[in-house]
């Protein structure tokens, strides 16, 4: 996979599984983000994207059981001593959460919250940390950073709050940034701003990026590589061009049909929806979890869950799909029972 040959991969996740009691939210997911590379993780709500993201950050609640192997810039995350890792984490990765309002302490000024990072990790005093916080806020193109630093989260707009989150995530120039649907709560023009900002900053810092989204429209602009998640599994992965030009998994094909162009800015609901919903407990049935919604399903799909395998006869290296009947390259998309959504019920 692409990325700097000299540096270790920003993220290497192998067979990561997450379970909450009996619910298996992530099942044997493997994912690599090369140094300085941008990878998009795509999937509907509930497919396990956040669980995977917080599992690699080791930030899941105690009720979650995580297995597998995770390395960030060569550091083994899951095996590391909890106390030591807690101190190191912010140097290894920065997180941008979906809901910045909930992710910021409501009763502390945002400058203090950014400044803490420098106080803890660079041993700065109060004044110095405040100055560094203002500089960090300026670096995410916040005007009058000293004044903004004194404000509380509820006094900022959604876009400004997300900028504060981006500033915190990149403050220590970590090798990996994990952004969990960071633009979902924002309006379209603010989405584009944050997107541009993250793309520019991570390039300047040289961080790898794991960008989580359910909106496949933004993927092409931002990512080199994409992974599609369905019902806790990665069902297709490969270079973004390969995924967009020649999707192999019927779920990916469906997602591409739901895409709306961010720049043409058509707001509201997508024009197309994949019929049906993901299974509530995908691990209970033996077959492919997408089968009930799949236009190409056959008997074998009900019997066995397909493993993630390289696609034979394709030019793109690393393009893999978990499907018994992957679309042949160059096949027209739009599977059979695709229903256009013309009017709201």
């Amino acid at each position: 996979m692409p990325g700097d040959a000299g540096r270790p991969a920003a993220l290497m996740a192998r067979d990561v599984s997450v379970r909450y009691g009996p619910v298996r939210a992530v099942r044997e997911a493997s994912l690599t983000v090369g140094a300085g590379q941008a990878v998009a993780l795509i999937g509907e709500t509930g497919s396990g994207k956040s669980s995977l993201a917080f599992a690699v950050a080791r930030l899941l609640p105690r009720s979650a059981r995580v297995t597998g192997r995770v390395e960030i810039a060569g550091t083994d995350v899951l095996a590391a001593d909890w106390r030591r890792f807690r101190g190191e984490r912010a140097r290894l990765l920065g997180c941008v959460a979906q809901d910045a309002m909930a992710a910021l302490n409501p009763v502390l000024p945002v400058g203090r919250q950014v400044g803490e990072l420098f106080a803890v990790h660079a041993g700065m005093g109060r004044r110095q940390a405040a100055a560094a916080a203002s500089a960090a806020l300026a670096s995410v193109r916040i005007d009058h950073p000293e004044a903004v630093a004194r404000l509380y989260p509820h006094q900022l707009s959604g876009g400004m709050r997300q900028r504060v989150m981006v500033a915190m995530a990149l403050a220590l120039r970590p090798p990996l940034v994990v952004a969990d649907e960071p633009t979902t709560a924002l309006d379209v023009s603010t989405q584009a701003e944050i997107l541009g900002l993250v793309a520019e900053l991570r390039e300047r810092v040289g961080s790898g990026l794991l960008w989580i989204t359910h909106d496949i429209g933004v993927v092409a602009e931002l990512a080199d590589w994409a992974a599609v998640m369905y019902a806790g599994r990665i069902v297709e992965t490969g270079p973004v061009e390969a995924i967009f030009d020649a999707p192999a998994h019927p779920y990916t094909e469906g997602l591409l049909l739901t895409r709306r162009d961010l720049r043409s800015g058509a707001p509201g609901s997508p024009l197309f929806q994949i019929p049906g919903a993901p299974p509530a407990r995908p691990d209970e049935a033996p077959g492919c979890p997408f089968m009930p919604r799949c236009p190409r399903a056959t008997a074998v799909c009900a019997a066995r869950e397909p493993p993630l395998l390289p696609l034979a006869g394709r030019g793109e290296a690393g393009h893999q799909a978990a499907c018994h009947h992957p679309a042949p390259p160059g096949a027209p998309p739009a599977p059979a029972p695709a229903r256009a959504r013309t009017a709201a019920p």
């Binding site: 930030l59 101190g87 984490r89 997180c95 909930a102 919250q113 990072l117 803890v120 915190m168």
Partner: peptide, 14 residues
């Protein structure tokens, strides 16, 4: 303790 902002704080290495 179950809030997102405490998770952020933990993530910051505090």
């Amino acid at each position: 303790l179950a809030s997102n902002w405490v998770r952020t704080a933990v993530g910051k290495g505090l």
